[in-house]
Design a protein around this nucleic acid. Structure first.
Length: 279
DNA sequence: CGGCAGGGAGGCC
DNA sequence: GGCCTCCCTGCC
C-alpha cells in the first residue's frame, strides 16, 4: 500500500529528479525509484500529494528529497535580483536532493567531460556488476557498490566501462574512503571551507566536484558549484561577481546569495540550460 | 571527420 | 598561485 505525504510547500518531483544533478534515480512510467542502504524507494506525485512505497530497509522520502527545506523562505531569501527571481518562477518546486555520499562522490568524479546519459550508464554498470543484489517484490535490484568493493575492481575493467582516465580517480578515491580517510559524519560537522579542503584530498576531486558533493549529499546548502554552464551565466548576468578564479568567484556568489546559495545555483543552472540563448 | 563535451592532475613558470 | 597540456570516449 502506498503511503502519502501532503506537500505543504512547492515541490516538483520531475524537475527535481531530472534536472541532471543526480544520477541514481530511475524512471518507471510516472514513478521514480532509487536504491540505497538495502532499501528501495518508489515515489510519484499527484499535485500536492507525494506517494511512496518503501521495500527492504527504510528510506525516508522526506529526508532524501529534502521536503523539510522551507522552500518559500529560501526562494525569498535568494531572490536578490530580477534574473534569479525569473529563474525561480520558471522552475517552481525545483529542489535540491540529498544523495547517498559515496555514490554522489563517484558520480561527480565520473562526470568530468561526460554527458549525463553516459554518467548514468556507467553508474548502473558498476551497480549491476559490483553492487549488492536486492530481491524485492520479485525483482532484482542492484545497489551501488560499497567503497571496499569498488576499490578492488581491476583498473582495466573500470577503464573498459568507459571511465578512461577517470578510472584511476575512482579506484584511488574508493580506497581512501574504504580506509576511512573520509568520514561523512565528521565532514558534516566542519565549516564549509574546511569540509571542502577535506574532500579535495581525494583523487579526482577538485573545486567543482567538491562543491557538488557538499551540496548534493552533505547538507552544505551554501555551496555554489561552477561548471561551464554556470561560468556562462555568471559572465553574462553577473559580470560584477566574476572573479579571477574559481575560488574567488564562488565566494562572491556565496556572499551575494547567502546561506542558501546552493539553491540559487540550482535555479540558475536549470534556467541557464533550458531558457537561455547564449550567443 | 575533427573538434569538442557539465574537470582534474601534474608540470612548469 | 596562474597557466598550459593531456587525459578517454562518444557524438555531432
Amino acid at each position: 500500500m502506498p503511503r502519502k505525504i501532503k506537500l505543504e510547500e512547492p515541490f516538483d518531483l520531475q524537475k527535481t529528479l531530472e534536472c541532471g544533478q543526480t544520477f541514481f534515480w530511475h524512471r518507471d512510467g510516472e514513478k521514480y525509484y532509487t536504491i540505497r542502504n538495502g532499501g528501495l524507494l518508489k515515489v510519484w506525485q499527484e499535485d500536492d500529494k507525494l506517494f511512496y512505497e518503501n521495500y527492504g530497509n527504510r528510506i525516508d522520502p522526506a529526508e532524501v528529497l529534502r521536503i523539510g527545506d522551507p522552500l518559500e523562505e529560501i526562494c525569498e531569501e535568494i531572490s536578490k535580483d530580477n534574473f534569479v527571481s525569473q529563474a525561480i518562477q520558471e522552475n517552481r518546486g525545483l529542489r535540491i536532493i540529498n544523495d547517498e555520499f559515496f555514490h554522489c562522490l563517484i558520480s561527480f568524479i565520473t562526470s568530468a567531460q561526460m554527458q549525463i546519459p553516459r554518467i548514468k550508464e556507467i553508474q548502473d554498470q558498476l551497480a549491476e556488476r559490483h553492487g549488492k543484489n536486492l530481491e524485492l517484490e520479485g525483482e532484482i535490484y542492484h545497489q551501488f557498490p560499497e567503497p571496499q568493493r569498488l576499490s578492488k575492481v581491476p583498473l582495466e575493467e573500470l577503464k573498459d566501462l568507459g571511465l578512461g582516465y577517470r578510472a584511476d580517480y575512482v579506484k584511488r578515491t574508493s580506497e581512501m574512503v574504504a580506509e576511512n580517510e573520509i568520514r561523512t559524519e565528521n565532514i558534516k560537522k566542519m565549516k564549509y571551507e574546511e569540509a571542502k579542503q577535506e574532500l579535495m584530498k581525494l583523487q579526482g576531486v577538485g573545486d567543482k566536484v567538491a562543491d557538488c558533493v557538499l551540496l548534493f549529499s552533505l547538507d552544505f546548502l551554501q555551496a555554489f558549484p561552477i561548471d561551464t554552464w554556470m561560468w556562462k551565466v555568471i559572465q553574462e548576468k553577473y559580470p560584477e561577481l566574476n572573479g579571477r578564479n574559481y575560488d574567488e568567484t564562488s565566494e562572491k556568489m556565496r556572499d551575494y546569495f547567502g546561506r542558501y546559495a546552493g539553491y540559487a545555483h540550482e535555479y540558475l543552472f536549470h534556467y541557464g540550460r533550458t531558457c537561455m540563448d547564449f550567443e
